[in-house]
Structures are given as structure tokens and as C-alpha cells.
Write a protein that binds this DNA or RNA. Structure first.
Lengths: 217, 217, 217, 217
DNA sequence: TATGAATGAGCTTTCATTCAT
DNA sequence: AATGAATGAAAGCTCATTCAT
């Protein structure tokens, strides 16, 4: 259907501009001129600039859940370690793959809270919810320390994730093409196990401690 | 000196608006009408809106280094644990005390990278530099695992810190007045020791694991 | 084409205002309110006030060369006297016909040299160039004294022209509707022949001296 | 008297700025900062910017009459030729000596007619009046053709004068330091005699025609 | 008397949105 | 359905002038 294609087109260019320039420095003019459509046409697809931006926030949300959790939850990994690895790896890959969308969500949108606050909160809640489930699940299986505050820990995980994303994929990525997502994933798991894992699990993986930080996969 | 007072006044209101509304949704008109000064007066103190915003970024930078590191570096704590606790506690207290300034720096400014990028980067570099020093110092003294990548770990610390700040002081603070910074600090240290600490140090503090997560201080 | 019409419309009102009020005392507001268009519409047609003004300077330049020299050079008059008369008559008629444009060029623009200098200079050069050609041509044909400095004389001609224009069409015209351009042209030629003409040519026209200064045409 | 000195100072700097930048591009700030006085002080000496500008127009008028006509009228030259030469020479010297003042009067003020019109007109009238007198006097003594319109001729003289001034002293002067005012004066007289002088006078000076245009003085 | 901080009317310009074609 | 010309509210900023010190 041609109409849908056109909308996708608009979203594509909007993404590019919002990500690189921010909300207010992106003008409808920029987008429609790249998308080669008229100004009036744009307003047939989106009520206004806000709605366009919100579409991208929603897209981010959907893509994220899809990419990171869809398979992970429907086809559960063999064991918790595998689960953790998949989660971490998929998350980092997502950040790298959907660079613009993540940029918009993580860097651009938070500064616009008055209008877009609800959408940010929605992602926050979902993300933390998923992390809480992961921790609870891990706890039930004895992999996670049970003396830790659930909300606090899910925030630590979120912080680590988002920061790694921001640093390696937003700020530095362009300068360091040697970056290997697997390496980052392993490092992150290593630290998370140390920080949140039970003594039992830690000991199971303690050989890591004296081996190179970036083990072969 | 009265002149300085007036400038402070403007900065105070600007802080409030930028923090709550963002850069573009804050209008000079808002600030001067709250500060009860004329439009021309504002422009006696600041060349333009950009310079006003930069003033706040610089203020953040200075206050942050002052608040968190000045005493910490000139009057070194008795031991490494004490040092870590002071660092974590001061950082969290800073976020709570300079709420608006932090908001501007962490939420508002990153979405405006074109113009303000250099200031953001400057903070990034300083913050990571400090964390790297902390890790290296801890490593030299045997408290920190030495198989971890320095840059990576400093980012994990930064992420955890900033996230905790964002979650507890920006998003949720208003709803949860019972929040105790000491409690958060202890939880954070606990996790950091687990994630980054050496086996030796972890065992020294392992009793924590089976005690309540929020120990009395 | 309607678009061109609209632009002409704006230029028409701009001309009126710039001519009567000067550059800084003419406000975009004045023009658009007379032209009954929106503020944004104005800026669709002109980048800014400066560009609008420059458009008028360019219009003056083009119209002037067209009006005074186009036919004069492509259809050369039968003899030098005829040529001189046509030149003088056309020039004075131009000043009278394009009153506002001339006003802008001769009275308004010179006081704004910083920005518009190049356009003024361009006209200066062209005008003097044409006058120089006229003098050289006249010299070659024996009508002009050959002991006179070319640059100096072209400036005398320019001065006389521009002054007559300024005085009769800008300052006094409104009070003296009886003004006849032919009369002025004849007077001017008379003086120019006397001042710049060769003895030979002067004697040819010496009968003028004892006849009424304003001969019937 | 110190007060008068101060006023002179202000006028001096105002002259410099108005002449080089025009009325609207000259700011009170510029002047007082150069004159090293406070803003309030300025307004003790001049009611407002307009009055300051008018002061300069008046100064021009006074200086001009003084410089060019005072001696000329009170100590009449021996003969008419001498008189003409003195008039032309003094006028050109005046333009060169009072460069800024002339610039203001001839280039800046005319574009501001709404406000300053009366002052411009006043100079116009005086200048033309003087030239008319010169012509009438010359006519009475048989030096001037009597078939010429007085008003027209005085304007031709004015035009030639002002143009020569504008061209040689405003536009080109800086590039041509070899300019000799005597040379210009002689050339101008030569042309004026030719254009306006009686046959009798012309023949008296006809030897000039075949001699170099710039005779030794 | 001299100052310069304070003022605000008023300017140019932008850009999301509308609507006639 | 698609267009892009037209719109005008609203922004940032300037600078002549005032007035408390």
C-alpha cells in the first residue's frame, strides 16, 4: 500500500534529523524536502510535529520489545546464563542497530519531558519491569542475591546498559570501529554477575576472574 | 556587590526554567518576568540565551568538582572503603542538592549537542577520569579486580550513578520523601564491590550479603 | 505568473517607503500592511530587508541603462548634437519617471555605504563610463575640447545632471508642475556645450547665446 | 570653560562616527565610550540623538559660510576672476578640510529628510543664494552670459561643486594622494567660464583653451 | 554634577500550520 | 489526493533614553 510506504519514508527522514539535530532544530521543511513530498502531504500523515515525534517514540518502544524480548520470552534459553547472555547481547545489538531511534529516545526525548514525559515513563516502566522479572527469576533459581532491593538493582542494570550504549555507540563508536559487541556483552555480564549474582553463581563463574576479561566465544 | 547578586538572581530563575521546561521551551520572557527585571537588563548580564545556558553548564561543572572532589582529594579518607563511601555519598548528595543543575546537565543539555557539545564532553571526560583514578587506586591497593577494562568499568560506574540519580531524584523523588541517601549509597557500594571488587575485598565484606541490604550506619 | 506579480507588488510599496522615509525608517510592517500580505509572505519573496533594498538598487541600475542607453546606443542619432540632446533628455525624463527609484539611489543609499557600497560604486562606474565615452566620441568628432581631463569632465556632467534631477524633481518638483523637461534639457546642453564644447562647436551654436535661453522646440 | 570643551569633544567623536557609519549605525554608546564620558553625561549636553546630529548640521552651515564667504565678502578680491578663483578654491579646500562634516551633510543627512529636511533645505537655500549672487554680480559686470536662468545655473554650479567634492574627496581621495586642490579649482573655473561666462570673458581667457588644462599658478 | 544600570518599545525574523488550488 | 504559497503568533535581541545613586 503506497500510503504506508510514504509514511515510512517520512518516519525514516524524521528519525535521521531528530537524532542528529534534536527536536527543535529539526524542521518539517527538512524532512519533507528530503522525503520529496509537499508540506500539505506531510500533514495528511501526521497531525503535527509532536505526533510525528511520538510515532518515533512508539516505534522505539515496539522495536525494542520485539528485538530484545520477543524471542527471548517465547523461546527461553536453555539456562539462566544463556538467558542473561542473550539479554545483554540483544540489548547492545539493538542499541547499535537502531542507533537513531535510540539516540532520539535516550538523548533527545528526555529534554522534552513536558510534552513527551508519558512516553518516556512508559519505556522506563517497561524496561525496569523486564529487568525486575529477570532479577526475580534469577533469584528464584538461586542465581541472584536475594538481599538486594529489586527496584534499585533494576536501575543499576538499566544505568549500566544505557551508559554503555551512550558511551560506546553514541559518543565514541565512530572513533573505534574495532568495537565488538560480544566483548562488551561479556564484560557487562561479568560485572553484573559480580555485583548482583549470588555467591554460588559467582563461584561457578569465578574462573573468569583470573582469565582474560574478554574470553573467546 | 549588587551586580553579582543580580546575575545570580537571573541564573537562579533560568535554572528553574531550563530544568523544568528545557532549552527551547524556556523563554527569556519567562525568566525576566519572574526575576522582575526588564528585558534589556537581562542582556546586560548575558550576551544571549546561549551564553546564559552555558553559564549554567559551567556552574554545574565547577560545583560538581568542588562538592564531590575538593575535600575528598585534599583530605583523603582513612581507608579505601571510607573513600568509596564518601565518593558515593557525596555524589548522590550532590545530585539531590543541585537538582536543577543536574537536570539541565544530564537531561536537557545532551539533546542540544551541536552547540553545547564541548561542555558535555568536558564533564564526561572529567567524570570518567575521576572514576578511572578511583579504580586504578583501588587496584593498586588490592581492592579492585585487575582483569577489568578501565574505560569500560568507569562507564559502568558512571552509568549506575547517573541512573540512580535520574531515577530517584529526577523521576521519583517527589513521590518518595522517605528516600535516604545513606541507604542508596550503601546499596550502590555493595553492588560496586560485588561487580568490580577483588575476591579478597568481597570476602571481607561478604557478611553484608546475609545481612539486611540497608544496614544501620 | 502570479508569483512575479506579488513580488512586484512588494517592490512597489517598498520603493514608496524607502524613497520617502529612508532605509531605517521603513519597516517591513509598513510594507506588508500596505501590500496587504502576511509577514511570512514577505519573507518568502525576500531573504531579508537588506535583500529587498538591494533588489531596488539593482532595479534602478537596470532600468537606468535600459531607459537611457539601450536605444541611444543601438539606434545612434543622426548627429552628435542630436545624440547629446537625446542623452540629456532621456536622462532627465528617467529621473522624472522613476522618481522613487532615483530617490533611493541618489539620496537614501549613499548614506548606507557600509552595506550597499558596492551597488553605488557600480552605478558610479557605469555612469561615469558612459559620460567618458560621450566626451571621447565628441572629441574625436571635433565637438569637444581636447584639453580637458576626461575623468574630471565626466564628473562635472554627472554632477550637473544629478543636481538638476535632485533640485527639480526631488526638492522642488511638487511645487512647480509647469516644469518642462525639454526646457531643462536645452538649458543643460547649452551650458555643457559652453563648458566642454570646442570653440568650433560653440561658434556653431553661438546664435543660442543671444536668443531666449528656452527656445521653442 | 570645561563644559564647552566637553561638548566639543562629544561633537568631535559624533562627527567621526556619523560620517563613517551613518546616522542609524552610529550609537550613542560608540560616541561616549570614545569620549570617555558616561551615558547620563551625554544627555546633559544634548537632549537626544537628533539634537546631536542637528548640532553637526548647524556646525557645517556655520563653518561653511565662515570658511568660504566671510573673508570673500568682507575683503572683496581685486577683480571678478580673482573672486571666482577664491570662491572655487575655498569651496574645494573646505570640502577637503571638513571632510567628516561634509560627508555628514552631503551623504548622510539627505537620506534622513523626514527629520532633518529643514536643515538640508536651509543649506540648499543659502548655497544657491550665494551662487545666484555670484552669477548676478558677474552678469552686472559683463562676465556672465545674461540669457541663462539664474536658478538653473546656480544649480549647475552647485552640482559641479558637490560632485567634484564627492568624487575626489569622498570616493577617491584616499587612493589618489597626488590630488592638488589648485588643479581642481582651475579646471572647474575653466569649465564654468566656458559654460556660464559671457563671450567676452571667454575670449579673455581663451588662451587657456590651447594651453594645458592645469596651468602653472 | 556625573554616572551607568535599568528599561521596554519596537524591530527583524522564524516556522508550524492552514487552505485554496 | 497532493501541493506549496500564505499566514501570523511569537521569539530573540537592540539601543535611545531615564533615573537612582
Amino acid at each position: 500500500m503506497k500510503k504506508e510506504m510514504r509514511k515510512k519514508y517520512i518516519l525514516e527522514y524524521a528519525k535521521k534529523y531528530f537524532s542528529s539535530r534534536g527536536y527543535y532544530e529539526t524542521h518539517i521543511e527538512d524532512i519533507i524536502s528530503d522525503a520529496k513530498i509537499g508540506k500539505g502531504t506531510f500533514y495528511r500523515y501526521f497531525k503535527n510535529k509532536e505526533e510525528l515525534f511520538i510515532s518515533l517514540l512508539v516505534e522505539f518502544l515496539n522495536e525494542w520489545e520485539d528485538f530484545v524480548f520477543k524471542d527471548l520470552l517465547s523461546i527461553p534459553p536453555a539456562n539462566y546464563r544463556e538467558f542473561m547472555h542473550t539479554l545483554v547481547f540483544k540489548s547492545l545489538t539493538f542499541f547499535r542497530t537502531y542507533e537513531d531511534l535510540c539516540n532520539i529516545y535516550l538523548r533527545i526525548a528526555p529534554g522534552l519531558s513536558t510534552i513527551f514525559g508519558p512516553y518516556i515513563n512508559s519505556f522506563e516502566d517497561k524496561m525496569l519491569g523486564h529487568f525486575k522479572n529477570v532479577i526475580e527469576d534469577g533469584r528464584a533459581k538461586g542465581y541472584m542475591r536475594d538481599n538486594l532491593d529489586l527496584e534499585f538493582c533494576s536501575n543499576v542494570i538499566a544505568g549500566a546498559f544505557l551508559r554503555i550504549d551512550y558511551y560506546y555507540f553514541v559518543l565514541r563508536y565512530k572513533n573505534d570501529t574495532s568495537l565488538n559487541v560480544h566483548v562488551l556483552a561479556d564484560r557487562l555480564i561479568d560485572v553484573l554477575i559480580g555485583g548482583l549474582g549470588s555467591a554460588e553463581w559467582r563461584s561457578m563463574t569465578s574462573q573468569l576472574e583470573n582469565s582474560p576479561a574478554d574470553p573467546q566465544r
